[in-house]
């Protein structure tokens, strides 16, 4: 790993000045950035550690409005929080499924949302599209873990579990651009490869995701479920987050987000149109699940993800 400068700014307004030459990267828990730097996917000259910036590690309940979680709050703290378990269950479920206990103790919410893709061509020594090459090696290569929808021209999947849950919960991100903070709904945060193949989200390199706000989920139930080859450390082959309002056995409104199938946490139009009015019995759930990913275009080795995602939808709705 090449050497770099390690800089600990004391305030948010200091951060931007280290990005004039574009060879800097924000550093929080480091569990993802360190891997990228070690493999020399990127050779940054400056690591900008946000630890000394005050108040980024706070969790704050805003009475009657929702919950504000600082970007530097550790995943383990989210996984263990009783408030999050009771009121924002999908996020609690997702945090508990992130990586391993040791990594959850280092990794932060902001870092989990902004982590880079796990595609092995991207992480390894291939000049792929995302690294300014002119070819996506996954499209015709080893693509078992890649996108089945929204992929072209680069078939990464978004690796974050918490982002999938936060999308179902309609989170709003607070972003500091060097001068001021602005609010961005999560539905406008992630970027698909056909818009920009180098980035996974709208953040400029010097922009800091400072906190995540989740609106209060009154009368709503939420859950997250993930399937991975190993229960620990592994990334999702598919995951589902759901948030619903129910009247008896009937869903009266809600949202379903799919993870592990697309370059961004995936909002499937058909399934989300059909969720309101769904009766929670086996037959209806079975029929409903088939609406998911009808527009998918799987690659040679990842067609299983469509069945897997539909089965996860069935599982999660049977338990809700």
């Amino acid at each position: 790993m090449k050497n770099f400068k390690y800089i600990q700014p004391k305030s948010l307004s200091e951060v931007k000045k280290y990005f004039s030459d574009n060879h800097s990267v924000l550093y929080a828990g480091g569990t993802d950035v360190l891997g990228l730097v070690k493999k020399e996917v990127y050779n940054y000259e400056n690591m900008i550690d946000l630890k000394s910036v005050p108040d980024l590690d706070k969790v704050e309940e805003v009475k009657g409005k929702g919950l504000k979680i600082g970007a530097l709050v550790k995943i383990s703290e989210i996984a263990e929080s009783e408030i999050i378990k009771n009121k924002y269950t999908a996020l609690s479920d997702a945090a508990q499924k992130v990586a391993s206990p040791q990594i959850r103790n280092m990794a932060t919410l902001g870092g989990n949302i902004c982590q880079r893709p796990r595609c092995w061509y991207y992480r390894d020594d291939y000049a792929c599209l995302r690294k300014d090459g002119d070819y996506c090696y996954a499209e015709e290569g080893e693509n078992k873990y890649h996108a089945v929808i929204g992929g072209s021209p680069c078939f990464i999947v978004h690796p974050s579990d918490t982002a999938v849950a936060l999308m179902a919960l309609d989170a709003v991100f607070n972003i500091f651009d060097g001068n001021a903070e602005r609010e961005v709904p999560i539905s406008e945060f992630f970027v698909q490869p056909d818009e920009d193949v180098y980035l996974e989200n709208i953040l400029k390199p010097y922009e800091v995701l400072t906190s995540v706000f989740i609106p209060e989920q009154k009368n709503k139930v939420s859950r997250f479920i993930k399937f991975a080859e190993r229960d620990v450390w592994d990334f999702a082959m598919a995951s589902v987050a759901v948030k619903v309002e129910k009247n008896g056995n009937k869903i009266t409104g809600g949202k379903i987000i799919l993870g592990g199938v697309a370059p961004i946490p995936w909002y499937d139009e058909k399934i989300n149109k059909g969720i309101s009015g769904l009766t929670l019995d086996e037959k209806s759930i079975d029929e409903f699940s088939k609406l998911a990913l009808q527009d998918a275009e799987p690659l040679s080795k990842n067609g299983y993800k469509i069945t897997l995602a539909r089965n996860l939808i069935k599982m999660i709705l049977s338990e809700i």
């Binding site: 390690y6 600990q8 480091g30 569990t31 360190l34 690591m47 550690d49 040791q102 990594i103 280092m106």
Partner: peptide, 10 residues
């Protein structure tokens, strides 16, 4: 508990 292979000097 953390992985010491994933902690930088800083």
């Amino acid at each position: 508990a953390v992985n010491s292979c994933l902690v930088l000097a800083g």
